[in-house]
Amino acid sequence: MSLSDRADKTGDAITPASKDVLVEMEGVAKSYRTGEVVAQVLHDVNLRIARDELVVMFGVSGCGKTTLLNLLGALDVPSAGTILVDGEAISSMSEGARTRFRATKVGFVFQFYNLLPTLTALENVEAALEILPLKSAEIRRRGVHYLSAVGMEDKVAKFPAQLSGGEQQRVAIARALAKEPTLILADEPTGNLDEGTGLEVMRVMSDLRRRTGATMVVVTHNPRLTAFADRVLRIERGRIQGSRAAGDP
C-alpha cells in the first residue's frame, strides 16, 4: 500500500518517510465554547510536513483549515494532541515561549495583509525584524533585500494606503520572509485580490519559498492555488479527508 493510499483510507497525511520532518501533529483536536455551545472545529488530526515543502490546505469556509493554520503558528493551543515544530513541542509551550517562537521561527501572511498603516513598506518589514537580536544595519539590509525580492524596491517609502492590494500583499510576504523563518503560514493570501493578482502573488511566494528553502503552508478555498503545491491536503469538517502530492490527480 502506497502512502497516498494509506492517506486516502485513514484520513491521515503522512509524508514520505525519507523526507526530513519539520511539523508533526498527533491526535490534535480543537474546540471552542461560545456561551453554552461547544463547537468541535478539529477532530483527531495527524499530520507531518517535511522541510522545504509547500503544502496547500484546501477546503470550504468553516472547515477548520484556518484553525489548523493558527495551531501550527502557535497563535492558538490545541484542546488535545501534540504539535512539534522543528523539534519543539509548541502545544505545551507557555504564552511567552509561543511569542518567542512566532518571533523567530514563523512568518505569517494574512488575507487582509495586516500591514501597519502608519509605517512605510520598509518600516513594516523592519518592524518584524526589530524584535530579533539583529543589528540595525542588518535589519535595514534585509528589509531592502526582501522588498526587492518581491518587486517592491521602488516603493519602499510608500504607506500601505498608497499601494494596491497586490502590492500590499507583496510587502506582507517580504515581512514574513525577512526574518528567514523556518515555517511560513499564509491564510488565504489571495482572498482579497482579483484572480490575476492573486496568482501573481502566489507565484512570488512560491518562487521565494523555493529560493529560501522555507517550508510553507497555505490555506485557501481557491482550487487554482493547488497548482503551486508540493502537496495538497483536503480539509472537510475538521478532518483531513485526503492528501495528494503534486501532479497526482
Binding site: T99, A103, V106, F110, N114, L116, A128, I131
Partner: peptide
C-alpha cells in the same frame, strides 16, 4: 485591533 493582532502574530510580546 487588527494591527495589534498582527504585531502579536509577528512575535511582539504583551509587555512590549
Amino acid at each position: 485591533r487588527r494591527e495589534i493582532g498582527g504585531l502579536m502574530a509577528l512575535g511582539y510580546g504583551r509587555r512590549r
